[in-house]
């Protein structure tokens, strides 16, 4: 119910924004559209963050790196001459394997440890993955091709054009994947036995043991799913950035995704979805404002470089100050 209302309000706001934006010369409309598209990737990573947070009450700082690893695996497979879809399978399988190893080797031994230990462990895991990427693949950027090329063989753009802005097919795929995964997960956590058991484990692990449910199994399930979500995000996002470098997902996506998840309330899957899109739009509009507005002689972005990142911090602070439980969350 609440989800519907909040989503409706946001859609109306978005519509109003586009309407007002249409009246401005060099207005923000292309940026808003781009923001929604970027937001889809933030939303995907935010879904993974929320999944782990729901299951274990821990911020998973390794969520972004699942994506970078997957992108590297895809890159290596394509480089070997394998078809794209085989590369995707290799990337997903490899990342799931890493998720399994992480759960068994790091998370499970810390199952009774304070949450902060687990949090630091995910940081260590993320940095370890970054270190391995640097060691094996080196720092120099690689380029990863998208699933469907942005331009067809005769040079015409694939995909659609909105507000004179060509939208690559990859972005449309990302949005579609986010929508369907969001739906699947929402169904999973409210309608299936396994989904309910995962929720139950996060609420009262002792009681789940009493009911004859193995909590190890739940933990494994959560981390495998998180790895899978991260991998999908990586495969979809990295071709859009143009450069595959170590830690690319952690430095570009993880922070907006976290902010999106917090906006959504950290425990709400629809919240992560909505929050991701919101943060995508906010960041994009910040980027537009940085170039559009001037302070004295200088453009805003010359006075404050990286306006779009500053807006993310401001949004995060504002949400935590006014509504720590997020737009859709029940608790902080």
């Amino acid at each position: 119910m609440r989800t519907t209302i909040v989503s409706a309000v946001l859609v109306v706001l978005l519509g109003l924004g586009l309407l007002v934006g249409a009246g401005v010369e060099n207005g923000p409309n292309p940026f808003i559209t781009l923001g929604v598209m970027n937001g889809a990737v933030f939303g995907l990573v935010a879904l993974g963050l929320v999944l782990v947070y729901k299951g274990t009450r821990v911020f998973n700082f390794a969520q972004g790196e699942f994506g970078t690893i997957a992108a590297y695996l895809l890159f290596l497979s394509i480089n070997r001459g394998w078809p794209y879809w085989v590369g995707i399978l290799v990337a997903l399988a490899g990342t799931v394997l890493i998720g399994l190893v992480l759960e068994r080797g790091v998370i499970r031994p810390l199952i009774n440890a304070p949450r902060i230990n687990v949090l630091v462990a995910t940081i260590a895991a993320a940095l370890f993955m970054i270190g391995m990427e640097i060691l094996i693949a080196r720092i120099e950027p690689r380029s990863l091709s998208p699933i469907i090329a942005a331009v067809d063989s005769s040079g015409n753009p694939n995909g659609v054009t909105v507000f004179n802005l060509p939208i690559e097919p990859q972005r449309l795929i990302a949005l579609g994947v986010l929508l369907s995964l969001g739906g699947v997960l929402a169904w999973f956590f409210s309608k299936t036995d396994l989904g309910l058991a995962v929720l139950a484990t996060s609420q009262d692990a002792f009681a789940t043991r009493v009911m004859g449910i193995g909590i190890e199994r739940m933990s494994r399930f959560i981390w495998v799913s998180a790895a899978l979500l991260g991998a999908i995000a990586g495969i979809l996002y990295v071709p859009l950035t143009g450069a595959l470098t170590p830690a690319v997902m952690t430095s570009n996506i993880l922070i907006p995704a976290f902010t999106g998840a917090v906006i959504g309330g950290m425990t709400s899957l629809p919240g992560a979805f909505v929050g991701g899109i919101v943060i995508g739009v906010v960041q994009s509009v910040g980027l537009w404002a940085g170039g559009h507005f001037t302070i004295g002689e200088k453009a805003l972005q010359e006075v404050i470089p990286g306006v779009e990142q500053v807006t993310i911090l401001l949004v995060l602070l504002a949400v935590l100050l006014s509504r720590p439980q997020g737009l859709l969350g029940k608790e902080a």
């Binding site: 036995d193 309910l196 139950a200 609420q203 009262d204 009681a207 009911m211 029940k330």
Partner: peptide, 18 residues
């Protein structure tokens, strides 16, 4: 030790897990 964030119906459903 009921599951506080689940409904009565869902609590019972978890009970029937095996």
């Amino acid at each position: 030790h009921v599951f506080p964030e689940l409904t009565i119906a869902q609590n019972l459903r978890i009970g029937a897990w095996p």
